[in-house]
């Protein structure tokens, strides 16, 4: 089931095309990674989904029907450049932002109490935002984003400004939100967290959507048939057992054992490789190297350049 879909979105600014024919579809109850180099058009796409700006062409569908003004109450948005009113008290401000998202004052108070207790920040209620540290303000901001229990959450670089402990806490909250049924769009440059959290990704580069799919499929698609083998025995002996279907690309010592990386070139498979080297050495581990998102990101963007 698709929750949100953008169809052939095009957005022009004065001298450049920010989005060119971008179509993505975000399955319900998933975490969707929105990746891309700086200036690729991610923020513009997010703003269009938030109805902050309108596309020149194309449509945004929510649950299969065009996105409407009131739908913003179903979206929670944490922008990359975020801030709060500095002179306003934390509690007052959280209440105001919650009411802007359509919550009643009573509901908002009840929910805020729950979250403030959960994050152990009740003592901040009457403090002014300018008295808080950056990390503290980020927590308040996170709460105001998710308080109205939106169906769709959009986090733009949510971990920036958090220490590792709080970043982990946030990660757990995001996973928890998905468990409860939210759909999350997650834009970041931190590829580690993409692998950890995302179910699907799309990669936007120079205004175009150049890669989309389930994260496992994407990684499989870009695997390069390299296997890492660690073993007891002589490296030369192993090397001499290989024929021209294989290429030894690296060897080193790991914890006192030898380890090699072997690339399968053509007309062969893992089993054949194993049957060749088994007589030569004592194998400790054998695993396929799947490229991480970082490598894929760099590779795809560079390929696109040429």
């Amino acid at each position: 089931m698709i929750l949100l879909e953008t169809q052939n979105i095009e957005k022009k600014f004065i001298n450049h095309l920010a989005l060119d024919d971008v179509s993505i579809s975000i399955p319900e109850n998933s975490i969707y990674g929105l990746l891309g180099p700086n200036g690729a058009g991610k923020t513009t796409l997010i703003r269009i989904i938030n109805r902050i700006t309108a596309p020149d062409k194309g449509a945004v569908l929510l649950n299969g029907r065009p996105l409407q003004a009131n739908d913003v109450n179903m979206i929670g948005y944490l922008p990359e450049e975020r801030g709060l009113y500095k002179k306003m008290k934390v509690g007052e401000q959280a209440l105001y932002l919650a009411q802007l998202k359509g919550l009643s004052k009573k509901d908002a108070l009840k929910k805020l109490k729950y979250w403030f207790e959960k994050f152990e920040i009740q003592a901040w209620w009457d403090k002014k935002v300018e008295e808080l540290s950056k990390g503290m303000a980020q927590k308040v901001q996170f709460i105001t984003t998710i308080l109205h229990e939106p169906k769709l959450l959009i986090f733009d670089e949510p971990f920036s400004g958090f220490d590792p402990i709080n970043a982990n806490m946030l990660k757990q909250e995001i996973l928890e939100l998905r468990k409860k049924g939210s759909t999350i769009i997650f834009s970041t440059h931190n590829m580690g967290s993409v692998e950890e959290l995302c179910d699907n990704i799309t990669l936007i580069n120079k205004s175009k959507n150049i890669l989309e799919g389930k994260i496992d499929d994407v990684r499989k698609k870009y695997k390069s048939n390299i296997y890492e083998i660690s073993f007891n025995g002589n490296t030369e002996k192993l090397e001499s057992s290989l024929n021209n279907h294989y290429e030894l690309i690296d060897h080193k010592k790991v914890n006192g054992n030898n380890a090699v990386k072997i690339k399968l070139l053509h007309e062969t498979n893992e089993n054949e490789l194993l049957s060749l080297i088994l007589p030569a050495v004592e194998i400790i581990s054998f695993k396929e190297i799947i490229p991480n998102m970082n490598d894929i990101f760099i590779k795809v963007v560079n390929e696109y350049k040429n």
Partner: peptide
């Protein structure tokens, strides 16, 4: 804060 407000 403006971006947060105008998303609401």
């Amino acid at each position: 804060i403006v971006e947060i407000i105008i998303s609401s």
